[in-house]
Design a protein around this nucleic acid. Sequence first.
DNA 1: TCTGGGGTCCTAGGACCC
DNA 2: TCTGGGGTCCTAGGACCC
Length: 410
Amino acid sequence: MTGATAGPAGTGTDRSVGSPILHVDMDAFFASVTLLERPELRGRPVIIGGGTRGVVLSATYEARAFGVRSAMPLARARRLCPPALVLPPERHRYHEVSTRVMAILRDITPLVAPLSVDEAFLDVSGSRRLFGTPAEIARLIRARVLAEEGLTCSVGVAPTMFVAKIASTRSKPDGLLVVPAGGVLSFLHPLPTSALWGVGQATEAALDRLGLRTIGDIADCPLPTLQRALGQAAGAHLNALAHGRDERAVDPGSTEVSISAEHTLSVDSSDQDALARELLRLSGQVARRLRDRGRVTRTVSIKIRLADFSTLTRARTLREPTDVSQEIYRAALELFHEAGFAGKAVRLVGVRAANLADAGGAGHQLAFDERPVGWSQLDRATDAAGRRFGTGSVGPASLLPRQPRRPESI
DNA sequence: TCTGGGGTCCTAGGACCC
DNA sequence: TCTGGGGTCCTAGGACCC
């Protein structure tokens, strides 16, 4: 590619000084994990996704050969690839495998920053004495993940996070690509603008209107022109990236900014009671995850998507932070009623908690008329029952299935 | 083609305070 | 009567990522 590469066989030499960042990215992760227990499906096009209104979550490379891509509506994927087998996701298993893969990475260095279940950044600058050059470390990781989990991954090695990320993408599947410090610009500049992290459809179109097609074009474009077209922050950001500059460091300790739960209904609904029950369920999920993490929220928001796919959000900042299911639900329900679109067909509802803080430092001031202790105790009892009997085993009576009028559903 | 669910970050406008 | 600038917080929407 640029003379800076090592192929899948891992034959590349790595004599550069500054290539301490690795980006490790599992190949077709969900599909590959599912195939571990279905070896007879190897070599066949397999798609992971589900539901009547689902999208493609993951697809084997055999399915991708038909044009199937992740996030594509399942209906379209089936048309593109009729022989594909569509299997439902098994999130619990993905999580388990992910935990073990991350543990392999933490054997190399504590400086591991997971980006999602199936990818992570590593800063290996302190690991060379023990494990060798960054390229040798990358080969070691790939060999261990394959030997211990039966899965392939691709690894990018570069002086900065975003170049390492692009490198792993360009080496997929089952590849390794090293971009030494001296080779960053010659690696980046021929690539299309969309290869940059943060350039999606809208930004690509805006860049295209400026006549910018490659990352090299962005590097040659005057900063003020870029900022006029994309805004201050985005313009400056892309300008820096196009010149290979990226100051971010691998941070293993970053904490969440928000926690949310949302659900697309299987059929659009304008039934206010049914939508309120969904808000109750989602509020409970969000609150439980807050308590699991020892966090409280001050800002509750709801998200509503109508049948025409238009999406609106409404937010409210509370007087006091909370992790109590009932308080989050009360705020969500008020926002829902105030939004004032009764009668319209709703496709999706969501609840989000933002403005988070640690529960310990939250010094709750009780108003005289408040009795939150009861609700809080109910949550704790529900949490304990969930741990014993399984999540969802105990919950509000209004979430119980409605009594069927006729026993036909049994 | 008919669009999931979990997130992050940025922008812009308004309220409010100094 | 007309006219500031800056800072912070909040809300709504949108782009983007996996």
